[in-house]
Nucleic acid binder design. Sequence first.
DNA 1: AATATTTACTCAGTATGCTGATTATCAGTA
DNA 2: TACTGATAATCAGCATACTGAGTAAATATT
Lengths: 154, 154
Amino acid sequence: MPGHLVRRFQQVAVAVFQAEVGAAGSDLTPVQFAALAAAQSAPGIDQKTLAGLIAYDRTTITGVVDRLVYKGFLERRASAKDRRAHELHVTAEGDAVLKQIAPAVEAAQTVMLRGLSEDEAGEFLRLLKKAVDAVNDLSRAPMRASRTGEDAGK
Amino acid sequence: MPGHLVRRFQQVAVAVFQAEVGAAGSDLTPVQFAALAAAQSAPGIDQKTLAGLIAYDRTTITGVVDRLVYKGFLERRASAKDRRAHELHVTAEGDAVLKQIAPAVEAAQTVMLRGLSEDEAGEFLRLLKKAVDAVNDLSRAPMRASRTGEDAGK
DNA sequence: AATATTTACTCAGTATGCTGATTATCAGTA
DNA sequence: TACTGATAATCAGCATACTGAGTAAATATT
């Protein structure tokens, strides 16, 4: 029942994240946090590349970005190079909220692994990463280091 | 980033399940499969207890049962003992589909762990179970062995 | 240059998951 | 018996995730 256990752990991980971040005064979801943090580390990134960085489906990211824009944490600008694409830029408010909740995000990761010793947690994360790497291409939204497409498999 | 990795693994696990089960001729989702299998092992179970067995939220299960009933795999009957509750019974079609996709469900679990050796997979599942057990009560839908409520913590 | 293909994004529809409110029923008590 | 609180299920609303289709713009081909 690995599938069931993983689903269960993911369920708890989301709840813990919301609790910790909520206590820090924000209602950012785990997915919104991941998207905002990724956009911060790559200013001007387009949605497709952002999706690849954090393994979102392309259709999911539209809604996530919508909500981050609505909350005032992210800006969509038309790209000069490619008028199909949107450049994403984190606003000052976005920077502020990321800074504000950083300790809560750290705390959440500690809480969700509280059943494991430090050694066990390290081994668990190592195996989890190895397992994920081996099946990365089996979902519609694989992880892509930075660029998508032709150079991804080279 | 344990949260991110777990989310990613869960994402792949669902995709692999759908692919394997789809190839076996069914469109049952992982959640629907879990609910149907649990109902089969406990005929006449009510929705609340079923939710506890597989750690679903009580509001989620309403929709899942709706869809299983619509597909003809599950029956809702009014309980004689408690007219608020519904007894769930797997139909003959439900039994048949569970039997039909059993090999595919097994196969999915092998595929999603293909990056790990047998020893690593065992250790991974051991740590995953341990981690989940330690945080079971941190989500709105904790796992409950069988009955809910007063005797759960005794 | 005109056409065909690919690509970035959006939208419609469906299935989880959650929060919070409501309804009907049960159980305990005045 | 009437009332109070607890409980099983449902419903409304929101946020992921997916499938598949559509749109506009870029790129490749003829």
